[in-house]
Design a protein around this nucleic acid. Structure first.
Length: 801
RNA sequence: GCCGAAGUGGUGGAAUGGCAUACACGUCGGUCUCAAAAACCGAUGAGCGUAAGCUCGUAAGGGUUCAACUCCCUUCUUCGGCACCA
């Protein structure tokens, strides 16, 4: 590694310049087009990692590019500063979360500045500051007023290691998303947000998000989990009790040969009472309920169950069918009861075989005449023709699904219904380092919200959090003991804090007016800046953060504070940075520290490499030799400036204008790797033929967004004034893109046989006569009749013989 | 099982119906040098051939087309999400 340009000096110089001149402060200017560029803000761990470097470098190029294109750019940065790691670190280092977090923020801010990112630091926010979290409390109160925040006692996900509850979205493969401890179920009285009230809009509006990655849309669709079907009413034999059952395959109703209830189904105890099998059933139920959800899900083959002794009547044919209890039916989906159709559902098939239950074929695959279930080796779950289905025989099953549903509704024996997977969002956390939930419990008045004028409910600076469980705030007397806002009687504060995903569900709005006093955000500012034009972050937030943010946005829309339904117009999910094919992690010991790269090569080289090595969306393999190559390229460019000519050769001018077009298009589409490749090609061309001052200045402008310090310095050396970010983006002259002659490929039967120069405007006839009289081509064409002559203008001819 | 993404030289990757492998890394050769480094120039998919050149080649197989990495069908592999979801 040979150093030509002194990156250290240059980078420090320009970072100071940008700061002193407030080069990146955004101002809402109605005369200009705005561009709001946002990256998912970091948790302040104290050090940035390569994932941050990649995420923020991608964004920074876009921001600087838009600035030069004349947009008013909002490019803010802040810190998602509440959360558990601060508590753990504070316990470990015998300090306070508050002190630890602010120290980390200071460290990270200075690391981000070292990268040369174009943030408007005047707008920085930290979610742990009362100026921020008081608006969490404000939003919570608004939701409470509208019945969207409510308290409910129920079985919740509990992580025994983190000593706190978890949202459904925070349970990953049956474990805690943070520490992977197995999640238990625990009965607790907790606060929920009614995100389910927005399920239709959250699903339907995904359609509008045409610039979101397909996989994120798919994951959210999946998560919301809409399924349409029919709720069928089965009457208990010898009683008026009705057992509703949900199915998406009402076309198979005539093949229902038994029903199954989940163990937790409220009717179960009643049904088995006093029957000979009561004891066996109770033992079975106890066993299943004890097993957690995860183990039930993983035991995929064996289906166990017991007969209740009771029967229901199938309303379509008045058949009596037995009711079973089984482990494969879950209480928390549908109605907790199913109709079983062994011939057309694989789970029912296995269960029926195991317990010798009867079966009936009701759907025949086209071309099949299968009637006897005994011949079946597995359930037939495909489409076909209805058989054994009364008046619906002969219909295509998809048509029958519709007809049967309508008929059942008319008969009053069923109802067309939709079921959803999405559950309400549990936000209570038994932790210290979070936003206090602004609620008061009065023995006389019940649950009383803290009045708006009393916000914020400050988080006490001292609390005995030890990691031993229970809400730490509950141990702070001055915090807990409060008088009721209504009756002034002795009352008690809520001691749980909010899940930190609450904080990040609206921070993009706060950035529009970070110091606004009257509300979470200034509606006028939000109207100018929102929605975010481009959002960039990791795929790990595809469900959680992005779904919650969409929910909050719709809530603000309902409050009339904003007039758009979706917060993020475009979303880019950047790929991970790998080392030796694996994710960088402490445990693997394969971490490359950005700081060490900055020291050795400078921030510009790291930015260049990370953009060049792979397109933004794909995984990126870190390569120490690749970074050498990036550094080499910058030195190459630097050296051009020492050997400028009076006048550039025409081929270099041509190359320049082609490059301006290519780079502009590529930046627009976040194709930075190919933009850099074409800038390298231009550099190679300059090395061949030499460049003049004009050409070089343009090269510097084009490279500016990627390696800003380097280019600012070169720009100044070339006599430029001020920051390069204020200089208009280069325009290409189409005249240079017009070629007088072109090299065309000549194919015979689709195989390349020659390349020939032709005038760009040659007619097809001339082309034909030239090509056909070409001696070199004659062996391929000779004496064979020409069937077709295909011309792709300026590119290729294909002779078919 | 369902949904989604991907599979191209020794390596990262380019080409979205029209020259497969741009650009870079690595490797090899050359120039410069007492020498080395750096820098600069050149070669670099595989096979056959002295050569001009020919053949094969984008996970596998089939199809559409004058022409397919690209579009369609089937299959395989990897990664990600959801999952006894009725």
């Amino acid at each position: 590694m040979a150093t030509i340009y002194s990156f250290k000096e240059i980078e420090e110089k320009w970072q100071k310049y940008w700061q002193d001149n407030k080069s990146f402060c955004a101002d809402s200017d109605p005369a200009k087009r705005k561009y709001y560029l946002l990256e998912m803000f970091p948790y302040p761990s104290g050090k940035i990692h390569m994932g941050h470097v990649r995420n923020y470098t991608i964004a920074d190029v876009a921001a600087r590019f838009r600035m030069q294109q004349g947009y008013e750019v909002l490019h803010p940065m802040g810190f998602d500063a509440f959360g558990q790691p601060a508590e753990n670190a504070a316990i470990k280092n015998k300090t306070k979360p508050d002190i630890w977090t602010h120290k980390c923020i200071d460290m990270m801010r200075s690391e981000l500045k070292q990268m040369g990112f174009s943030y408007d630091w005047e707008r920085e926010v930290s979610t742990c500051d009362a100026d921020y979290y008081r608006w969490n409390q404000w939003i919570f109160l608004k939701m409470f007023e509208r019945g969207l925040a409510y308290k409910k006692a129920s079985a919740v996900n509990w992580c025994s290691s983190c000593e706190t509850t978890l949202a459904n979205e925070e349970v990953v493969e049956g474990g805690c998303w943070r520490c992977h401890t197995k999640v238990d179920q625990k009965d607790l009285d907790q606060w929920y947000l009614k995100i389910t009230e927005y399920k239709e809009r959250l699903l339907d509006d995904l359609q509008q998000l045409s610039h979101w990655p397909e996989r994120v849309i798919a994951m959210q669709t999946n998560w919301i989990g809409k399924s349409q079907g029919v709720e069928i009413y089965f009457r208990l034999k010898g009683s008026d009790t009705v057992i509703p059952v949900f199915t998406t395959r009402v076309d198979t109703i005539f093949g229902a040969t038994y029903c199954v209830l989940a163990c937790e189904h409220p009717l179960v105890k009643e049904l088995i009472k006093g029957t000979p099998q009561e004891k066996e059933a109770l033992r079975f139920i106890e066993k299943v309920v004890k097993e957690s959800k995860i183990t039930r899900a993983s035991s995929d083959v064996k289906k166990e169950g017991v007969f209740t002794g009771a029967y229901v009547i199938n309303p379509v044919n008045n058949e009596e069918i037995p009711i079973w209890i089984a482990d494969y039916v879950l209480m928390d989906y549908g109605t907790g009861a199913i109709m079983a159709v062994p011939t057309h559902d694989q789970r029912d098939f296995l269960f029926a075989k195991e317990h010798g239950l009867s079966m009936r074929v009701v759907i025949q695959a086209s071309g099949s005449t299968l009637q006897s279930p005994g011949e079946m080796k597995e359930a037939y779950e495909g489409d076909g023709i209805q058989v054994n289905s009364g008046q619906f025989n002969g219909l295509q099953n998809q048509e029958a699904t519709q007809k049967i549903a309508e008929w059942m509704e008319k008969q009053g024996i069923g109802k067309i219904q939709t079921h959803w997977r999405l559950r309400d969002w549990l936000i209570s956390r038994q932790r210290y380092w979070g936003t206090p939930i602004p609620m008061i419990y009065c023995p006389k008045c019940g649950i009383v919200p803290v009045p708006y004028e009393d916000l914020p409910v400050d988080l006490p600076r001292d609390a005995p959090f030890t990691g031993e469980g229970g809400s730490p705030l509950g141990k702070v007397k001055e915090f807990v003991e409060v008088s009721c806002p209504k009756c002034k009687g002795k009352s008690r504060r809520e001691t749980d804090t909010m899940a930190t995903f609450f904080d990040s569900s609206w921070y993009f709005l706060r950035f529009c007016s970070p110091k606004f006093e009257g509300a979470p955000f200034d509606e006028k500012q939000a109207k100018y800046w929102m929605p975010v034009d481009q959002y960039i972050g990791g795929i790990e937030h595809a469900i959680l953060h992005l779904l919650y943010s969409r929910f909050f946005t719709k809530f603000f829309q309902d409050l009339g504070m904003i007039d758009f339904p979706e917060p993020f117009n475009r979303l880019l999910t950047q790929g991970m940075v790998l080392k030796d094919g694996e994710v960088m992690s402490k445990s693997r010991g394969n971490i490359v520290d950005p700081d060490s790269i900055i020291k050795r090569y400078g921030a510009d080289t790291m930015r260049l490499f990370i953009l060049f090595a792979a397109p933004p969306e794909t995984e990126l393999e870190w390569d120490d030799r690749g970074i050498e190559g990036a550094f080499r390229f910058l030195n190459r460019v630097w050296r051009i400036q020492e050997n400028l000519k009076e006048k550039a050769a025409p081929d270099v001018l041509k190359a320049l204008h082609k490059t301006i077009k290519k780079v502009t298009d590529d930046y627009q589409d976040f194709k930075f790797n190919t933009a850099i490749a074409s800038l390298m090609e231009l550099t190679n061309a300059i090395y061949q033929s030499g460049a003049d001052k004009e050409v070089f200045k343009n090269l510097v402008l084009l490279l500016g967004p990627i390696v800003p310090h380097f280019c600012e310095e070169l720009w100044q050396m070339m006599g430029g004034r001020g920051s390069i970010t204020k200089v208009a983006w280069p325009k290409y002259d189409p005249q240079y893109l017009i070629e007088s002659t072109v090299t065309m490929v000549v194919q015979v039967n689709g195989r390349v046989r020659a390349r020939r120069e032709f005038p760009a405007d040659i007619t097809e006839e001339d082309l034909k006569s030239h090509v056909l009289s070409d001696e070199k081509l004659s062996p391929w064409i000779q004496n064979k009749p020409i069937r077709q002559f295909i011309v792709v203008p300026q590119k290729l001819v294909n002779i078919v013989v």
